[in-house]
Design a protein around this nucleic acid. Structure first.
Lengths: 362, 362
DNA sequence: TTGTACGCGTTATCAA
DNA sequence: TTGATAACGCGTACAA
């Protein structure tokens, strides 16, 4: 007796057991105060004891208050990496919207640490339930996050983590593992080439040293070869190309590098392998060195399609965004306990296993 | 006016517009009859016109009728392939259960075409809303499905499709694409070996010719090499090993085959690469030929972990089961239109990109 | 500080 | 063949 069958514990059941009304129970669940300490304690105890799980359907149905999320991500143009997490966020919001959740999102973007910090503070000024963000730099992130914390705003870090920051959850990748995987492929594919093998690592980035993921991929890559003691069979050279804005200049740059000799494999650590593929095409070397890069952006997919890029690694960029929204809802609405780290899978794509809906786009 | 803001169209709005009560609207939505033709027509029209989308939360909250699913899959032991789709089904049911859906599942398994047919008919005898099944053989599937059709029971095919069968949806893989992908890896990794390369294709199956997926993978594999006109560089041999129940006998069998010469690569088309890996280990050949197989079953994962297996391909076996349940609910409860084919991604796993939660199990 | 009562959109029962 | 109405579990305004 007590509550009805189907062993659904309801607020009413808690109220009965606690000898109070559902109004009081509701107040402690949403801690809106106005409940005497002993009663509050007792109710919380009963909730734990009965393992009360709110009925999400009833909750969403009755609730009128919209959920407001702050989104703080790097700015991007169409076809660039950050379009993917954004797409995932959009899809999640649409999906939950269809489910009857009212979700507002305040999107802000940044392209410098200063903008990042300012935008973060601006989010705080709005009445926001939680924040989904990619941390720009260590220093700014730490100070910003301190404000979030003081204002009791939960935040999720996506794509890259900052150690020791008390986020609700980190949703992202392990770039060292990425590097290891690319190394495995590179090694397997080149190992039967006679003599000493040459591999290039190319970083196309204006500020490689500020982007942890690129460094970590590179070090994962190197780690593989040193762990396997392949130093005598392989020689690696790293090229940091800061200015890749003009394809023509890049072509010339690559051509000059190649005049010293053609490597057996090239690993591009950023998301812009397609630029290197283009340069190689112009030199009729697209069937030459093994070319491996990252991320399912449109131009890379096209490169895989025409086989100017051999392999692409991706860490479910879109799903990161989707999960971030879902995690926020799970935490705020469902009050679920959230895993501190949600690591994405590391997917290997080549022409043959590229999903057809991606190939057809091109 | 008319309906309230937030442009949520409610049954009430339809009723107002049609000049009838919500009871009548409800009857046409669930076509329980007892509505005069002209009224029904008018209501359906308004529903289309207003693009009415039922509020899922209210629906689940108010609904008392449980959803009963029939599950008809091959029998399996722990650690075998079919454990994975089953796991997905279980997870989906649990998850929807938490969401307040009441779901009953009647699980039946088969290990022969006759049992398959009988179990299918048995499902029909129960009061079932829909069926999730893997078709055993063409003949039995066709006759069984005819009964499903006549009794107006929707069914979903998972893992393998049967052409021309009017299923609600097919959820599964493209085995030809699998074969192509394995071929790509095999080719890339062996292409620099001097001279003519030897590749073995091993089918560990009692009835290979009845299992379309195995044949299709093999033909996809061959297709890659013939499309690229690599016949002069590669020679392939296929071995069908029907009896692999005893590892010891298999070891001897493999040893005998190897006495003729060691291949450069071995592709095992079923889900039991680990058995071949074990045989190779005993001959101290686990670092020998490239070994590629399918599916994330426990013993295969262990093989990848100790590098006796180089690559595993998998087609999201678990997700197939999950999606099947989800699709049933989308169709029956949400009345959504369902895609006729839902193709899984084709994932490539090697030691370096194996998710840590899988590696830790071993 | 506490309790009551209405509304959310749908299902389903019962009376007309 | 119809329409009115009580649930479903929760949020919340308002009365006590």
């Amino acid at each position: 007796m007590g509550h009805k069958d189907g062993n659904q514990i309801r607020i009413k059941d808690i109220a009965t057991k606690a000898g109070c009304s559902i109004g009081t129970v509701d107040r402690v669940i949403h801690n809106r105060g106005k409940v005497s300490e002993p009663v509050k304690k007792r109710i919380l105890e009963i909730i734990r004891e009965l393992d009360y799980k709110p009925n999400v359907n009833a909750r969403v149905l009755a609730s009128k208050r919209p959920l407001t999320l702050g989104i703080l991500l790097p700015s991007f143009r169409k076809g660039e990496y950050w379009e993917l997490p954004n797409l995932g966020i959009k899809e999640a919001i649409e999906r939950y919207d269809e489910q009857g959740y009212k979700i507002n999102a305040i999107h802000l973007t940044y392209n410098s640490p200063e903008m990042f910090y300012k935008a973060g503070m601006k989010l705080l000024a709005n009445d926001i339930d939680g924040i989904i963000m990619n941390p720009a730099t260590f220093k700014e992130s730490v100070t910003l996050v301190r404000s979030f914390f003081q204002n009791n705003k939960p935040f999720i870090l996506i794509d890259s983590d900052i150690n020791g920051i008390p986020s609700l959850s980190f949703i992202g990748k392990d770039p060292v593992q990425s590097g290891l995987t690319v190394a495995k492929l590179s090694h397997q594919i080149t190992k039967h080439i006679p003599g000493k093998k040459n591999i290039w690592i190319i970083n196309l980035s204006k500020r490689k040293n500020q982007i942890y993921a690129l460094l970590a991929r590179e070090s994962g890559f190197m780690k593989y070869f040193s762990d396997k003691q392949l130093q005598n069979d392989y020689s690696m050279i790293t090229f940091d190309i800061e200015d890749h804005s003009s394809q023509k200049m890049l072509d010339e740059h690559i051509e000059k590098l190649l005049s010293q000799g053609i490597p057996n494999a090239i690993y591009v650590t950023g998301s812009r392998v397609y630029k290197i593929a283009n340069s190689l095409k112009k030199l009729n070397l697209d069937q030459g060195p093994l070319l491996i890069g990252h991320d399912l952006i449109e131009e890379n997919i096209a490169g895989v399609k025409d086989e100017s890029i051999d392999f692409l690694i991706e860490e479910e960029a879109k799903r990161q965004g989707y999960l971030a929204v879902e995690t926020m809802i799970r935490s705020i609405v469902y009050k679920e306990k959230i895993e501190k780290k949600q690591m994405m899978n590391l997917l290997i794509y080549t022409k043959e296993n590229m999903p057809s809906y991606l190939l057809k786009q091109g």
